[in-house]
């Protein structure tokens, strides 16, 4: 599949944004995060900016972005439509919490309820994003029971990383949270390797035989219907990154999981300025690593239509 940068940026940013919003909102609602107004402004602001920025960047790949509002209408059947509805609901709940936190310095009562709602809705939104991909049968690598858990885990992993860095910058003791971020990085690493392992064994049930209805023996593409690349090959027959897939997998693992694991573990042990630097670097490196991971998620995914082209 063609890795459109707008979609890669959208899924990584909104995943991290909703993960951060879920953790910050739940933490504030439960009284685990102090109702400091500047902290509220920065934490909720960063979460909302990532979530909204991601949503806006996803409209950049639309052919007719001015009609994007229509995408809220088909939530009965379409995961993409459900994602739009869930994202807006989450953002509204988060804005309600942020208003109480930033303007009134309060995260209790009705604002706590808004915080819990934000946390639940964030999980729902990330789930709908995952289901857009998991529901596509023609792409075996995505039509997998691991797609939903992977999106959820990567969201909370990057969200926890950002929260650790943020609270650390505000001078709070984040040693326990850094330990959680390190464990999440390890869990993400294990899950990503499991996804790659599973996909290697599941190239898809369809073959050129079943695609053409020609039974038995071997079917080989003799001649394409066209001499140049068409929409199908440009959109679904993308091949550039597959050439470097192995190197990119190593880079993704180092940046998204291994390095953050070490740095968050360091922050969990040392604390202080060194711990803060480690946590901030870890959070930034992790997001960069997730961009590579998401690039591979698209570029390595094979669509059944490529069978018709002998690819």
């Amino acid at each position: 599949m063609h890795p459109a940068f707008s979609v890669i940026a959208f899924t990584v940013c909104s995943g991290a944004g909703f993960g951060l919003l879920a953790l910050v909102s739940a933490g504030a609602a439960l009284g685990l995060i102090p109702a400091d107004r500047l902290l509220g402004f920065v934490a909720m602001g960063l979460g909302l900016a990532l979530a909204c920025g991601g949503l806006l960047s996803s409209t950049a790949h639309l052919g007719r972005p001015e009609r994007a509002w229509r995408a809220f209408s088909q939530w009965r059947s379409s995961w993409l439509s459900r994602e739009g509805v869930a994202a807006v609901a989450t953002i509204l709940a988060a804005v309600a919490l942020a208003a109480g936190w930033v303007f009134l310095g309060r995260t209790d009562g009705a604002f706590a309820a808004a915080g819990l709602a934000t946390a639940v809705l964030s999980v729902a939104t990330v789930s709908t994003t995952a289901m857009i991909y998991a529901s596509l049968k023609p792409i075996a690598a995505w039509h997998s029971p691991l797609t939903l858990p992977a999106y959820l885990l990567f969201s909370v992993m990057t969200g926890a990383g950002l929260l650790t860095a943020l609270l650390s910058v505000f001078g709070l003791d984040v040693r326990a949270l850094a330990a959680v971020a390190a464990v999440l990085a390890l869990a993400g690493w294990v899950l990503k390797r499991a996804v790659w392992h599973r996909n290697a064994d599941h190239p898809g049930v369809s073959t050129l035989n079943s695609a053409t209805g020609l039974k038995g023996g071997m079917v080989r593409s003799l001649e394409w219907p066209h001499t140049e690349e068409n929409y199908l090959l440009k959109e679904m027959g993308y091949r550039v990154a597959r050439k470097h897939a192995l190197k990119l997998r190593r880079i993704a693992q180092a940046l998204a999981f291994a390095l953050p694991l070490v740095l968050f573990a360091l922050a969990a042990v040392v604390g202080g300025v060194a711990g803060t630097v480690a946590a901030v670097v870890a959070a930034v490196v992790q997001l960069a690593g997730m961009l590579v991971e998401r690039w591979l998620f698209f570029a390595e995914a094979k669509h059944t239509v490529t069978l018709y082209y002998g690819r």
């Binding site: 052919g63 007719r64 995408a71 023609p138 695609a211 929409y231 199908l232 679904m236």
Partner: peptide, 27 residues
């Protein structure tokens, strides 16, 4: 008139039946 050109339908089709018109911005 309702298509926003998100291309998801072309991803969902295993047969490659849909082709995007980049000029008009719709499927």
């Amino acid at each position: 008139d309702k298509c926003i050109g998100c291309k998801l339908c072309s991803w969902a089709c295993p047969y490659g039946a849909r082709e995007f018109d980049t000029d008009v911005g719709v499927m």
